[in-house]
Design a protein around this nucleic acid. Structure first.
Length: 777
RNA sequence: GAUCAUAUAGCUCAGUGGUUAGAGCUUCCUAGUGCAAUUGGGAUGGUCCCAGGUUCAAACCCUGGUAUGGUCACCA
């Protein structure tokens, strides 16, 4: 024979799953097809940098980071991930200007004077009339001149929860405005007292200004707005918060984008872009501003406006009727038209353009920057769900008007919003949580939870669903997963170490019997389940469950197999589980290590003496104890030795991060854990046990009462349950009501309901009779 | 006010008109140990929001009500 026998291509059975992802353009899961091989062009809407990042940002960027990691590290796409930074916009400008004005005002006020108090008081009255009034009922509105006089009355009214609720209905920020006003007024009164008693210090002046900052900023801004002309003021605010943003992202283990684009770096491109949209006939100029013509665009044959949320477009047009002349006032031809270029008012940062000095509108930046990097088409555009309309719809309209194309974006992925304990997060609801501890806020999330726990919380929810961030989610499910994984990896690592130290390469057995076959099968199944979950629109909750189930099965195997454990198989499983967790971005510590790593502060440079001494001291003192017992030859020696063993395990080794688990063969499994983690676990457990013990008697009694109450409910046989029961009239043979108290026949639903209740009672009664039998022999 | 959701176990939620409505967590019990521990096994727990209707059959479909939440062009 000189030729090889024929070979045939194997058939994949079952076939591997194909990636489908929920796409906002269809509001269904659509098959993911990149236009160019496995290259993926991905543009993500980044933050507007004017304030500290909050938990909502964390939700969005961590979730997108998860999707990005799955796409690159699991599915193996070559992703080019671009994110923009909005570093110029109305909010940045006004925030920077107000900060600047307050700063100036503060440094110019070098004594507490009646004039200063008057200025603050005037600002306070304006705040009360403009802001607090919004929430007040029309007959209780504060009129000019009577602000301070009406305050005592309002302070009493706000104690009334019902009244306050009504105000919040009228204006959801009422509480916030009221609190600010109250704080400010207290500071004003305090200042007056100080002046009375002759105190005029700078500190008191500054204190007054700090306490009334927000209120004062508004009036200062109204007065001196146009005097602030230095563009560096808003630029430095933006760059400050941009740095903070990336620091927060780094703490959250979010990968940096491949490309970061900033609006202020793309102004000439933006101007040219707008020019071409005008040339294509979809924009018009009015008093130095340029607007996009949504009506004309929507009416064009090959274009549609508001592809993502066409229903919102309808709302907008309805609203236009209500607003009437507003459209004319701002120079727009239709209320749905939006600004591409805004003429700058005096004091506002501006750039030259064909239409005079101005700055870009909000939506145009993303169109221009994405086009500059990706050209006339991209695979994925992502962002928070709240951006879908109008931002992304406007973006698409602009870009399609510019490129003269039908589809600028192929897939829109919108991440779901975050709620706190069932409510949306907002400053006015006072449940606002920032990411980093260094910024002021009601809460700082990284002080309370780790980046890993936060990411796990998001992984247990679908990326495009609403997340409810709650204490119970974090301390329940998340902590649970974390503990399960940590314990699993610790045990496997210890097993692997033990196995290596036994040093025999083979004991003459293959260790691949039915139990190992089963476990291997579970391993394969978990891998398949994991892949199909992620292919099904990144279903991370299901994927995580596949990992947890595999861990549970492996635990069962470890505990049932005893000495003849196939360590290699267990190690492979642990390695894969660890890799998948790291793939999600949950990794800590060294990558080569089995598992997902465990953060261990203070584990830096290794110094042999420092490392070994505490362990040797523990060992040595244990030896001392055993020796003394042996020398003393007491009757209780055996018991005392065991007590020493317990002390070594439960007291001395815990802070050293060593846990000992006894095994069948009499040799303990030595587990190495970060000490902090071990101490935490011990304390949590103790607290739980204490809590249980303290309420045990009460809860047992409670349980018993509940059980008996339920059984007692079955005392009445079903035939009698409706007798003498108000609300029902005549009964049939079995005691089921036919008519109500007035003799009217029961409605169908009613009849069905009593039937159901009757059957329920029959069951209860049966249980009751059984119970009675056990009571009387 | 307009509009859209949601309402199922103590909590978070699955549930496709058709057996006795499910899961995870919590709680309780339990195995393993000299004592612990990782871990395992089991049990408890339901007026499917209320009222009517459609259907042979409703947690599921329809109508009305109630409650909660979101959105209403600043938003991640």
């Amino acid at each position: 024979m000189t030729t090889q026998p024929p070979w045939s291509l194997p058939k994949q059975q079952p076939e591997e799953p194909v990636l489908y992802v929920y796409n906002s353009l269809t509001r269904t899961k659509t098959k993911f097809v990149p236009t160019n091989e496995r290259h993926v062009k991905w543009y993500n809407c980044g933050p507007t940098v004017y304030d500290a990042s909050h938990l909502g940002h964390a939700r969005n960027y961590v979730t997108q980071d998860i999707l990005r990691r799955v796409m690159t590290d699991y599915f193996g796409y070559d992703v080019h991930f671009v994110m923009n930074i909005t570093d110029i916009d109305d909010k940045i400008i006004s925030r920077a200007r107000q900060n600047h004005l307050i700063e100036n005002f503060r440094s110019e006020s070098n004594a507490l004077t009646p004039e200063l108090v008057d200025t603050v008081f005037e600002a306070w009255t304006i705040h009360v009339r403009d802001k607090v009034n919004k929430g007040l009922p029309s007959d209780q509105k504060v009129v000019e001149g009577s602000e301070e006089a009406s305050w005592p009355k309002l302070s009493v009214l706000i104690q009334n929860a019902e009244w306050k609720q009504e105000c919040l209905k009228r204006d959801e920020k009422f509480d916030m405005h009221f609190t600010a006003a109250n704080r400010c007024l207290l500071a004003i009164r305090n200042a007056r007292d100080q002046i009375q008693s002759g105190i005029k210090s700078v500190d008191e002046a500054h204190n007054l200004i700090d306490e009334s900052k927000d209120i004062l900023a508004r009036t200062l801004d109204a007065k001196y707005k146009s005097t602030v002309t230095d563009p560096n003021i808003s630029r430095s605010l933006a760059s400050y918060w941009e740095t903070k943003f990336f620091e927060d992202m780094a703490r959250l283990n979010v990968r940096e984008p491949d490309t970061v684009t900033r609006v202020t770096e793309f102004i000439p491109e933006i101007v040219d872009f707008i020019k071409r949209i005008m040339d294509n006939g979809f924009a018009y100029e009015s008093e130095g501003s340029v607007y996009f013509n949504t009506i004309k665009f929507d009416n064009a044959d090959d274009h549609n406006y508001a592809k993502l949320e066409p229903w919102s477009k309808g709302n907008r047009e309805l609203l236009e009727d209500g607003e009437g002349s507003l459209a004319n006032k701002t120079g727009r031809r239709s209320a749905s038209d939006f600004a591409l270029w805004k003429a700058s008012k005096p004091g506002e940062p501006s750039w030259p353009s064909f239409w005079g000095p101005g700055r870009p509108g909000w939506h145009i930046e993303c169109s221009v920057m994405a086009s500059a990097i990706f050209g006339d088409n991209m695979d994925i555009h992502s962002g928070g769900i709240d951006l879908a309309f109008p931002h992304h719809d406007n973006e698409m309209a602009q870009s399609e008007a510019y490129h003269n194309c039908r589809a600028w974006v192929n897939y829109f992925w919108h991440t779901g919003h975050l709620h706190i304990e069932g409510l949306k997060m907002s400053k006015s609801l006072k449940n606002f949580i920032t990411i980093d501890a260094s910024c002021a806020g009601t809460g700082e999330i990284l002080r309370k939870y780790t980046a890993r726990q936060l990411r796990l919380a998001f992984l247990t929810q679908l990326w495009n669903a609403k997340v409810d961030f709650s204490e119970s989610l974090m301390t329940g499910e998340v902590r649970n997963i974390e503990i399960t994984m940590n314990n699993f990896f610790t045990v496997v690592k210890a097993l692997v170490n033990q196995h290596r130290s036994d040093a025999i390469k083979s004991d003459g057995f293959h260790h691949y019997e039915a139990l190992e076959q089963d476990l291997t099968k579970s391993f394969y199944e978990a891998q398949s389940a994991f892949r199909s979950a992620l292919s099904d629109s990144f279903d991370t909750p299901v994927a995580l469950n596949a990992l947890r189930e595999l861990v549970s099965k492996t635990n069962i195997y470890i505990n049932s197999r005893g000495k003849h454990l196939n360590v290699a198989l267990v190690e492979n499983i642990a390695r894969w589980v660890g890799q998948m967790l790291r793939m999600f971005g949950l990794g800590e510590g060294e990558k080569v290590e089995l598992g997902w790593g465990q953060a261990d502060q203070g584990a830096g440079n290794i110094n042999r003496e420092e490392v070994l001494t505490p362990y040797l001291r523990a060992l040595s003192s244990f030896r001392d104890g055993v020796r003394q017992l042996a020398i003393a030859k007491n009757d209780t020696a055996l018991k005392d030795i065991l007590a020493l063993c317990d002390k070594l395990r439960d007291v001395d080794l815990v802070p050293l991060g060593v846990a000992l688990d006894d095994q069948d063969d009499g040799k303990a499994l030595v587990k190495l854990v970060p000490p902090a983690e071990l101490i935490k676990a011990r304390d949590e457990k103790r607290a739980q046990q204490d809590a249980k013990a303290s309420k045990k008697a009460a809860s047992i009694e409670e349980e018993r009462r509940k059980r008996i109450a339920k059984l007692e409910k079955g005392r009445t046989p079903p035939q009698d349950m409706f007798r003498n029961c108000p609300g029902y009239g005549s009964l049939d043979d079995e005691g089921i009501p036919r008519t109500d108290a007035e003799g009217q026949e029961l409605s169908k639903n009613q009849a069905k309901k009593v039937q159901k209740q009757w059957q329920e009672q029959e069951k209860l009664h049966k249980a009751y009779l059984e119970w009675q039998k056990t009571l009387s022999p």
